[in-house]
Simulated assay, not measured.
Amino acid sequence: MNVTVREAAEGDFFGWLPLFETHCANRGGRLDDAKALIVWSWAQDPAHALRAGLAVDGAGAPVGLVHFHVEPRTIDASIALVIDDLYVQEGAQGTGVEDLLLAYVRESATGAHATRIVWSHAPDEADALSSAEAGARRRDAVVFEADL
């Protein structure tokens, strides 16, 4: 599969939307129009922390996405990039697209002088876990989440 990764551009909304919608559904969420427009506007605003990358096939059709942001790391006084969303559509999974998306984030981390990249996967995402473990270490941390 001939795939490249690039920053999501203004005209990519309708290619990005079904990927993000499926990713949200896979994570137990529901993406409505308002949420989609808010996240897209964040990704398109150069002053906002959120960045978006798209993996596109040879015909230019999006097959994967990554959303990430800069986070200060107080424990070592450094900067990290935190991946909020990483998704590869069915049919392109297991073909190296996730690795390309992670490489894109790694390049962005270098440009931001970040010292690490942090992300998570659901425990049942075997391909994603295998790919992540090939290039990163698994932390022992337990993540908590509280709704407000």
Rank of each mutant, 00 (worst) to 15 (best):
D99E: 03
A80P: 12
R106S: 06
G94P: 10
T95N: 05
V105D: 02
A128N: 10
G96D: 10
D99V: 07
I79F: 01
V82P: 05
G96C: 10
E71L: 13
V70H: 05
H113L: 14
D99P: 00
R73I: 07
V63R: 13
P62W: 07
H113F: 12
A136C: 12
Y104F: 10
I117R: 03
T95M: 02
P123V: 10
A128C: 10
I38T: 14
L50K: 11
T110A: 15
V70E: 03
G91V: 12
A103I: 06
F68E: 00
L37D: 02
D85I: 07
A136Y: 02
P62F: 04
A36G: 11
D127F: 07
A61Y: 01
D124I: 06
G64F: 03
D57Q: 03
L50Y: 14
T95V: 00
T74V: 05
E90W: 05
A49T: 08
P46V: 15
S120F: 09
A52C: 12
G111I: 04
T74G: 11
E125M: 13
A136R: 03
G60Q: 01
S131W: 07
S131I: 01
I75P: 00
A77V: 11
G60K: 08
A43Y: 00
S120W: 06
L100T: 02
A52V: 03
L86D: 09
V105G: 01
D33A: 15
L100H: 13
V66A: 07
A92S: 09
A109G: 09
D85G: 05
A103T: 14
L37P: 00
D84E: 13
H67D: 12
G60A: 08
A126C: 03
G53F: 09
H113D: 04
G111C: 02
D84A: 05
G94N: 11
E98I: 15
